[in-house]
Design a binder for these strands. Sequence first.
DNA 1: TACAGGATGTT
DNA 2: AACATCCTGTA
Length: 221
Amino acid sequence: MQWTVDDVKAWLLWTLRQYNLPMISMEYFALDGVALSSLCEEEFQRRAPQCGCTLFAQLEIWKAACQELESRLDMTEASRWSSPGTSASNDASTSNNCASSSGDASDDEEEEGDPTPPPTAGGKVATRGGSHIHLWQFLKELLASPQLHGSCIRWLERTKGVFKIEDSVRVARLWGKRKNRPAMNYDKLSRSIRQYYKKGIMKKTERSQRLVYQFCHPYCM
DNA sequence: TACAGGATGTT
DNA sequence: AACATCCTGTA
């Protein structure tokens, strides 16, 4: 996360726009990438009461995606991420240090994450982070960023909530990373999706194709 | 490999 | 409750 203050601002604006979120005061986010990463969910909420939760969750996904790209993908796609930048003019700063040699990487190294303890006052701080995200929410978050995850999961018919998992291994790995479950795989992830059938969160498609699922109505909006 | 679900443990 | 894990069986 080597973002500058401007990179952070660009990411915020881009994310707000992607999700039609209300505008926020950028003054509270005059931070570089490292500082932004060190913020806990509550601190996001404080700075952006309307959408801090979403921004925090999106940043988690972004970080996971960056790790994925650095460790897994080759340089051919590296040009696609760099900094978010609104679709208009953009970057003279492709701040990439992706010098990762290819070779193999059964698993990536630890993330630079957050070595900075949150300097908040008062007693109770980070600890109660929000990892209580549901699988269906996580999948929707991935689906909401096709530029980042379109190669592993994408909508087939967005209005109907039909989507396809293109790369089951990668989706499962991202889910495991998010939940801190290193042993996660598609077998277990798909079992959880199947539980959604009787819960009315997802349903089977008309003529079931493999790796294609469908959200039930309130959940696909 | 993917899919369907039952059983059981964990948080 | 919402998984995570494991497993039997089917296609």
